[in-house]
């Protein structure tokens, strides 16, 4: 077997997953080839680290920290739940209140205005004639239209 072929099977040789004949071939090659042997030794040392991994022990205060964290999250979620429902309820109440107030205000002002306009209903036609005969609507003296055209301005 060539070196490249041997190097493709080293990990399976270390894992003892090869058939007997292949394993024996590799063994005899390694005893002759220095380069492959050094690669095998290094790979064996590196790969065997996986067989000696230490099991970690959990921190004794792990649960205390965890329960604190869960409490924090629960509190945050409670606030989140409260806020939208608060807004959901309060917003329509405020909006409908403002609408009702503005409608009522509009009705009241409208009524007030229509009551004031009724004052003119009591004035008779003759009274209007008297007013229009005796009082000018402005303070400019009365003059004929012909005079106004001849003079160009009022005197």
């Amino acid at each position: 077997m060539k070196c490249s072929e041997i190097q493709k099977k080293l990990i399976f040789y270390i894992e003892k997953e090869l058939e007997k004949t292949s394993a024996l071939e590799i063994e005899s090659h390694l005893s002759k080839c220095k380069k492959c042997n050094s690669i095998f030794n290094e790979m064996n040392k590196t790969y065997s680290i996986l067989n000696n991994v230490e099991q970690l022990n959990p921190n004794p205060f792990f649960y205390t920290r965890l329960s604190e964290k869960i409490k924090e999250i629960d509190n945050k979620e409670n606030k989140k739940i409260f806020q939208p429902s608060f807004i959901k309820i309060l917003q329509p109440i405020v909006v409908s209140f403002v609408l009702i107030v503005s409608v009522v205000l509009g009705i009241v002002i409208g009524n007030e205005f229509s009551q004031n306009s009724n004052i003119f209903e009591n004035i008779t036609e003759t009274e209007i004639q008297v007013y229009s005969d005796n009082f000018y609507l402005n303070e400019i003296d009365e003059e004929s239209f012909e005079n106004f055209l001849i003079n160009g301005k009022s005197e």
Binding site: Q7, K8, L10, I11, F12, E15, I39, E42, M43, T46, Y47
Partner: peptide
């Protein structure tokens, strides 16, 4: 395993 072997070699 094949990939790992290739990388290590």
């Amino acid at each position: 395993k094949k990939n790992l072997q290739k990388k290590l070699v």
